[in-house]
Design a protein around this nucleic acid. Structure first.
Length: 729
DNA sequence: GCTGATTGTCTTTTT
DNA sequence: GACAATCAGC
């Protein structure tokens, strides 16, 4: 019984508890993936459960893949039949099979963030909404919040309290109408549709219930109500649900995650059993102690203390750089010296709170020739050239029964009709869209009928249609990768990139094409449609992480992963904990930020490095100080290295307003003229030199005053942009 | 009517 | 540093 040999008492209990619903509270690094994968193997090998009767829901595609690999390690090919996927992928699978009962065709389109914005753009135009007041981000989250709480556009409008809300409700209505017309589903819809189908169609629900005898849900602390309802409907009287989670690692409440669900599990599943795993096998004593002490500062929390037997006298290293230029340089230097001492790049990860922070890091790593790979950020399938290419493919997709109008093609047409430039601008596009609406068909159909557009546009449209149609006639005769090559070549898209020497984009397209070739090989029966459906859930290519790269990612993306050496970067108050988040969510948000820090720290197995920097932050619009999360770590776990501020009034400086200079100097046009002619007008972001204060950076312009961040001694000052003592560098 | 250059605004976290 | 709005020029 080698399967169970390596397990401790609690793990064994969790693996072998197969006759009841089960809740596993698994602290960070307590071997929860091992427990779940072993349990699946145990069910199949010892309890003779058919592999296809087992379902495991994970949080990310990455986690799903990893779990699958580990189950394969136990079972070999048998593992193929176990269904391991994210909840979204699972829903897509269900919908492909059963969405017909909901009146939608099986080839429904899944919309990504870009598509959503494209629809909002239309809505704003028609409803005359101002983007500046209603950012896409804000309205999309408004829509998402309503949708996941089952508030439709009408109800949202009815309950709107002020003008702004009414406007957003109207955009919401437009958005929903547009989606329905094109049989498009956004990420929320995947869950919502699944929920409705399972709830309202008993025969479908029964069918899916019968499929699974054992269900597992990982990262259960981050499940939201909608997901929970779906999961509950999949459990029948004689099947068993096993959930695994850690309330201290709840980091998705902003997306609707509810910790109550895992806390109150036994209310919904009265005869369930609970196992607590609190021995940490991952981190060393100092890392774990620091994490324990940190998370204790959360008031809203169930007491739980992890312990480890991994003794180590290696402390957590904390470095404070003088400014954000030197911080990544320190990180890069540290990585280099680790590498010289035999540490593999792939065993090092740099984690940060927000995607934009990777920029500074990237530069420093490039300078040091350290290979790295960023997860998240601008992901592979989010890249413009990839989406352009896929839009071409979408136009080639054959018609499917149940979707005569193929309005989803409008999105593709809008994206690529003028890529490469064909002299087709906004005006032409607008008339085209109107005509398509009048004729009740998609925009490409109008183009295909011929004769659309005037002058130059008319010709290039005809040529465009010709290219598309030529490729379309090959859909059944050549493979998908060949098809894409052909259409990109014929359309002039490739040529456009070559002319602009867009090496990287060309590389990416090559990669996409070889990826598709791979898909074709693995799915000989897969049609173009199948392929397009398949990839819409993937945001990133996930096959390269075995390479020799330092791994860069947000902490959210690092959830569930572990690394030998972990850097947590830019631990500055305001950046992490994130200021916006706290402003919006108060104490609760702060506690979520702290849980996020807890997740970050507990990713480290052997060594943990924390860094931050002083100096001015554009994002925060103030001088930075070390994050409170660093201060919450006991001193004896920490080893401080690097700069201390030269004086202690740094925090006073950021409120410094007056300069005494504002009334000096003249404000005539001549003076401005003088500056602008000789050295160019002073602009935001410029590096300047002041006769007295030395070097500084222009933070912003307030009329004729320039707000400039000088060295710490002088802090932030407002100085007349045209003042004689000020020079652009 | 289309294109390209310039300015301004805003950057939390994800399937 | 990405993206949208704006404007001048073709």
């Amino acid at each position: 019984m080698s399967l169970l040999e390596q397990l401790n008492q609690q793990q064994l209990e969790a693996v072998t508890c197969v006759d009841r619903h089960l809740r596993i509270i698994a602290g960070a690094g307590s071997g929860k993936t091992r427990v779940v994968t072993t349990r699946i193997a145990y069910l199949i090998e010892q309890c003779h459960i058919y592999p296809n009767k087992i379902l495991a829901i994970t949080f990310t595609n990455k986690a799903a893949r990893e779990m699958k690999e580990r189950v394969e390690g136990f079972l070999g090919d048998t593992a193929q039949a176990v269904m391991i996927s994210t909840i979204h992928s699972f829903c897509v699978r269900l919908l492909r099979e059963d969405i017909l009962v909901h009146g939608y065709p099986r080839n429904f389109t899944i919309l990504d963030a870009d598509d959503q914005r494209s629809i909002l753009r239309d809505a704003y135009k028609q409803l005359q909404v101002d983007v500046k007041t209603y950012s896409y981000h804000r309205v999309l989250s408004y829509i998402s919040n309503n949708k996941t709480n089952f508030i439709d556009a009408n109800s949202a409008l009815a309950r709107a309290n002020y003008e702004g809300e009414r406007i957003m409700a109207n955009v919401y209505a437009f958005y929903e109408k547009r989606l329905a017309e094109m049989f498009g589903l956004d990420f929320d819809d995947l869950l919502i549709f699944t929920y409705h189908i399972l709830k309202e169609h008993v025969e479908v629900r029964k069918k899916w219930q019968r499929r699974f005898a054992y269900l597992h849900v990982d990262e259960f602390q981050d499940v939201d109500m909608l997901q929970y309802q779906i999961i509950k409907m999949l459990v029948k009287e004689d099947s068993y649900l096993c959930v695994v989670g850690d309330p201290d690692q709840t980091i998705y409440t902003w997306r609707g995650a509810q910790v109550d669900i895992i806390m109150n599990f036994e209310k919904d599943f009265p005869h369930s059993h609970t196992v607590i795993l609190n021995e940490n096998y991952r981190s060393t004593q100092p890392i774990l102690q620091a994490s324990n002490e940190l998370i204790k500062n959360n008031r809203n929390r169930i007491e739980k203390e992890l312990f480890t037997r991994n003794e180590s006298d290696e402390r957590i290293v904390h470095f404070t750089a003088m400014d954000d230029y030197n911080e990544p340089i320190w990180v890069a230097g540290k990585i280099l010296s680790l590498h010289h001492n035999g540490v593999k790049y792939r065993d090092i990860a740099v984690l940060y709170r927000s995607n934009y922070l990777s920029r500074g890091l990237e530069k420093a790593l490039l300078d040091q020739h350290i290979p790295y790979r960023i997860y998240g950020g601008v992901r592979f399938y989010d890249r413009a050239e990839i989406k352009d290419a896929l839009s071409y493919l979408r136009l080639l997709a054959p018609k499917v029964e149940g979707d005569d109008k193929e309005l989803f093609k409008n999105l593709a047409v809008k994206r690529i009709i003028n890529l490469p430039k064909r002299g087709i601008g906004a005006k032409t596009l607008e008339t085209l869209e109107q005509e398509a609406a009048v004729k009740d068909t998609n925009m490409y159909e109008i183009l295909k009928q011929g004769g659309f557009g005037k002058g130059k546009a008319k010709e290039s449209i005809a040529k465009f249609v010709e290219v598309i149609e030529a490729s379309r006639s090959c859909v059944d005769t050549i493979s998908i990768d060949q098809l894409l090559s052909k259409v990109l070549e014929d359309s002039g898209y490739m040529e456009m990139l070559r002319n602009d020497a867009e090496i990287e984009r060309l590389e990416n397209l090559k990669e996409l094409i070889s990826d598709i070739a791979n898909y074709v090989e693995n799915n000989p029966d897969g049609s173009l449609l199948d392929y397009l459906q398949e990839i819409s859930l993937y945001s990133d290519k996930e096959d390269l992480d075995n390479g020799e790269f330092v791994q860069l990612m947000t902490i959210h993306a690092a959830k569930g992963l572990e690394f030998d050496r972990v850097f947590v970067y830019s631990l500055c108050d305001g950046i992490f904990p994130n200021e916006r988040s706290i402003n919006e969510g108060g104490q609760q948000a702060l506690e979520e930020e702290r849980r996020l820090a807890y997740v970050a720290f507990t990713r480290a197995k052997k060594q943990l490095f924390l860094s931050d920097s002083y100096g001015y932050s554009y994002v925060l619009d103030k001088l930075k100080t070390t994050s409170r999360f660093v201060k919450e770590i006991p001193q004896d776990c920490l080893q401080e290295v690097g700069a201390k501020p030269r004086n202690s009034f740094a925090s006073d400086v950021d409120t410094y307003q007056g300069s005494g200079f504002s009334s000096l100097g003249n404000t005539t046009d001549e003076a401005i003229e003088h500056t602008s002619k000789k050295k160019g007008k002073i602009r935001k972001g410029d590096l300047v030199v002041h006769d007295v204060f030395g070097e500084g950076i222009v933070i912003k312009l307030e009329g004729e005053l320039a707000v400039i961040a000088f060295d710490k001694k002088y802090g932030i000052r407002k100085i007349l942009a045209t003042h004689a003592s000020l020079h652009k560098k």
